[in-house]
């Protein structure tokens, strides 16, 4: 039996997110292996995924904040697949794993450019991952968002298209 690591008396903020853990669970669905440690693949991770950025936040701003946790080795901006414009996320790579953990603890959930940003430990940037995976080129979450977010292109794109369609359909029905 594996000896469980001594647990802290309060939750740690330097763990991978439920999103990452959940994603891995799904992937392993049909493999009846025994459950793996969620930290696997992240044990030496030096990269962070950073989300909920404004489309207008610059590399320099990100650099300014994130270098408070250590020297940054590489910064990859998330881009709209079609327009190649920033679409609200990025990858920050540090030189050391500890710097990445510290960033989760001290910077994740604080504000950059007046938005609360999200950080998640990431196994490492791979070419292609800088592009949004949403239908219209941006991030998936920006497709269906029903709230207006001026920092992220207004309404969700799919949602906005729907709205427009509905308005067109309804046009004149009351007459």
């Amino acid at each position: 039996m594996r000896i469980p690591e001594r647990r802290n008396t309060v939750e740690r903020l330097d763990r991978p997110s439920a999103y990452y853990v959940g994603k891995n669970k799904r992937r392993r669905y049909d493999e009846p292996e025994e459950p793996k440690d969620p930290m696997e693949g992240l044990r030496d991770a030096t990269t962070l995924y950073v989300g909920n950025l404004s489309f207008y936040t610059t590399e320099e701003q990100i650099h300014e904040l994130f270098s408070k946790c250590g020297e940054i080795k590489r910064l990859v901006m998330g881009l709209d697949r079609h327009n190649k414009t920033p679409c609200g996320f990025c990858f920050v790579e540090y030189y050391t794993h500890q710097d990445a953990l510290d960033c989760l603890k001290y910077v994740g959930g604080t504000k950059l450019d007046e938005r609360i940003i999200r950080t998640d430990l990431d196994p490492g940037f791979v070419e292609g991952r800088q592009y949004g995976r949403g239908k219209s080129g941006g991030q998936v979450r920006d497709e269906y968002r029903e709230e207006y977010d001026p920092g992220r292109g207004g309404y969700g794109r799919a949602y906005a298209d729907d709205q427009r369609q509905r308005e067109e359909d309804e046009y004149g029905t009351g007459r």
Binding site: K68, C69, G70, D102, K105, Y106, V107, T110
Partner: peptide
């Protein structure tokens, strides 16, 4: 710890 930790506590 890194200075930014103490910033974050005050925040």
């Amino acid at each position: 710890h890194k200075l930014v930790y103490y910033h974050s506590v005050l925040t």
